[in-house]
Design a protein around this nucleic acid. Structure first.
Length: 576
RNA sequence: GCGCCCGUAGCUCAGUUGGAUAGAGCAUCUGCCUUCUAAGCAGAGGGUCCCGCGUUCGAAUCGCGGCGGGCGUACCA
């Protein structure tokens, strides 16, 4: 068991002995904010003392008297207003690292019990290019799914494509009147986008075109064979684009059930809501009112428009019901931008009214801020167009290739291109995951690709240096490294080893709060601790026992770096 | 009008149940490559955490009131 887990369980037992009726939930063991205080601390005893009007330092003293941790800790201090600070024995740290290397758990303990979690993210629109607006949902959602999986949960990812809606009326008009077959073969998305934009513009000035679009839409919705076939072709062409982009990003989905999948259920769903008195007629539409929820009182949700069409609340309700019936999840996570907060409040409230039985179900809207240009306005190209994701990834790789070529001109071109791919894509992802997700962030090519500071390449570089040591170790007379008990002789080794112990704590926090930036910062610190160790502690030139110990430490650091980056969806390289 | 979010170093941003002397990157300045990859390391300077009041042993964090900005607010998603 990991040291902080042992400390936690013994601490709880000690608190129970001192204050039998105390709530143990706030008595948490956390890494100390400053190593001078110790390795782990709890601030929770002060809260307990406060509730009971006891002297907090006295409570800490009493609790400490019930703690038997001499194997793990060299001392347990009472500090400040009533902190309990735990100082690990170096042997205990060394033992924990060695143990972590002998199995695959690697400083993690699997979640008990594992939960079933649906993650809904990315959700691009058919017949349109994926653009920067999709990047955060895609990268963040993929990362959260990876983190939850790594912790042992059963994760189901579902890409809720925008494959239905009024835009298809215009697309069908454009397709039938002006389709350029050659252009469609060369770049289907660009051609469909052109058709849409041209027809959309024409609709604004020409009532006949607008009417034509309306009629094509009605035909499609009525199941007209020709329009359905064209619509399916548009989806297939779009899916090709999605596959290409997801392939480049290393993002996968278990299911791709777009909005259209739920169409057949919508009329019955609205009828049921109306029959149960959950929805009622209002200005010709069917609306759900939330009179019992103060924050939603003035904002009803429409489930059917006055023209008979359905809204995304309707589709999302059907989608959620399907997910509950199909997978019985404990939790459903939606990763979208913050502007949809009201929608998800309404959706969750409406679903609880409609299907009140799912008591343990957790519904989470994991929202994120906007990507801004350097002028502080929504991120666009100079000419004011949205930036296509494919172009963005191309440019990232091109810029990375220039840097690789400059740093490492002797490598073969194929090798440089592969490094540039991993570095470029990694840089884009890391730039998106590093800021607090709720902040708007300013997109900067230079910063993202500067390849210095707190960036993906810094982490990848640290990993490549570790791998380089192992290549050299295999060549040298010492032979291949074997796991050995660690000897932590220097401050750099001890700091690095202690940092490794906290990988699981950080991953749990990422999953708990849906914040990958915690992991980014942890890995950045890890890379820093490793690099300082690397600068100060020779590995291959050390004497036999120390060499073996340091190799084992490198191995542990490398594995945590690789697995941590894997959770972020970022690849590593053997050589940079 | 109402609701949500934001305001922290010159710039861009972190800041885990309220917790100890508020951190990082960039930029600026000073050192370090005959030694496992210098895409690196060591060090320096830089703060009215928007303002005020309050709660608390303790507030960047919680409450109230301002100021400034972003977004949302019934038939788009």
């Amino acid at each position: 068991m990991l040291p902080h887990k042992v400390i936690g369980s013994k601490l709880h037992a000690a608190v129970r002995a001192v204050l039998p009726d105390a709530d143990l939930a706030p008595v948490l063991v956390r890494p100390c904010p400053d190593p001078r205080f110790g390795d782990y601390q709890t601030a929770g005893l002060m809260g307990l003392a406060k509730q009971r009007k006891l002297n907090p330092r006295q409570v800490a003293t009493d609790v400490r008297a019930h703690l038997e941790l001499s194997e793990l800790c060299e001392k347990i201090e009472i500090a400040g207003a009533g902190f309990l600070n735990f100082h690990l024995r170096p042997e205990a740290v060394a033992r924990a690292v060695t143990e972590a290397l002998t199995d695959d758990r690697l400083f993690l303990e699997p979640a008990v019990p594992p939960r079933t979690i649906v993650v809904d993210f990315s959700s691009p629109n058919v017949a349109k290019p994926m653009h920067v607006g999709h990047i955060r949902s895609t990268i963040l959602g993929d990362c959260l799914a990876r983190a939850l999986r790594r912790l042992g949960h059963r994760v189901i990812t579902d890409n809720h494509l925008g494959d239905w809606g009024t835009q298809f009326g215009m697309l069908l008009v454009g397709w039938k009147r002006e389709l350029n077959r050659v252009a469609l073969q060369t770049d289907p998305i660009a051609e469909m986008e052109r058709l849409y934009q041209k027809t959309s513009a024409a609709c604004k000035t020409d009532a006949a075109i607008l009417e034509a679009a309306r009629q094509e839409l009605v035909k499609l919705q009525a199941g007209d064979a020709e329009n359905l076939a064209l619509w399916r072709e548009m989806i297939a062409l779009s899916q090709g684009q999605f596959d290409t982009i997801y392939g480049r990003l290393g993002v996968t989905f278990d299911h791709t059930l777009g909005e259209s999948f739920y169409n057949p259920q919508l009329p019955g769903l609205v009828a049921e809501l109306a029959a149960k008195g959950i929805a009622r007629e209002s200005d010709g539409a069917q609306a759900i009112f939330f009179d019992d929820i103060p924050s939603l009182k003035t904002t009803p949700a429409l489930v059917r428009k006055s023209d008979g069409g359905f809204n995304y609340t309707t589709t999302d309700l059907a989608t959620l019901a399907y997910r509950m019936a199909t997978w019985q999840p404990d939790e459903v996570i939606y990763v979208t931008d913050g502007r949809q907060q009201l929608h998800f409040q309404q959706l969750f409230a409406a679903f609880r009214k409609w299907q009140p039985g799912h008591l343990g179900l957790k519904l989470a809207h994991v929202w994120f801020g906007s990507i801004l240009g350097e002028d502080g306005k929504p991120f666009k190209t100079r000419s004011g167009e949205t930036i296509k994701l494919a172009d963005l990834l191309d440019e990232a790789e091109e810029r990375a290739l220039r840097v690789v070529t400059e740093k490492n001109p002797d490598l073969a071109e194929a090798a440089r291109r592969e490094i540039a791919r991993v570095v470029g894509i990694g840089a884009v992802k890391y730039a998106d995951l590093l800021p607090n997700r709720q902040s708007d962030y300013v997109f900067s090519w230079d910063k993202m690709l500067s390849l210095s500071g707190n960036t993906a390449p810094y982490l990848q570089y640290a990993y490549a240096r570790i791998r380089s040591i192992f290549r050299k170790a295999a060549e040298s007379a010492g032979g291949p490294p074997r796991p050995v008990p660690l000897q932590l002789r220097t401050a750099e080794e001890t700091t690095l080893a202690k940092h490794l112990l906290n990988f699981g704590i950080v991953l749990e926090a990422v999953a708990e709060e849906y914040r990958p930036n915690y992991l980014c910062n942890y890995l950045y610190e890890l890379a820093g601790h490793f690099t300082r160790f690397y600068e100060h502690c020779p590995v291959l030139k050390a004497a036999a026992a120390e060499r073996a110990s340091r190799l084992a430490l490198c191995d542990a650091a490398g594995r945590v770096l690789r697995q941590g980056l894997e959770v972020l969806g970022i690849e590593v390289l053997e050589q940079m």
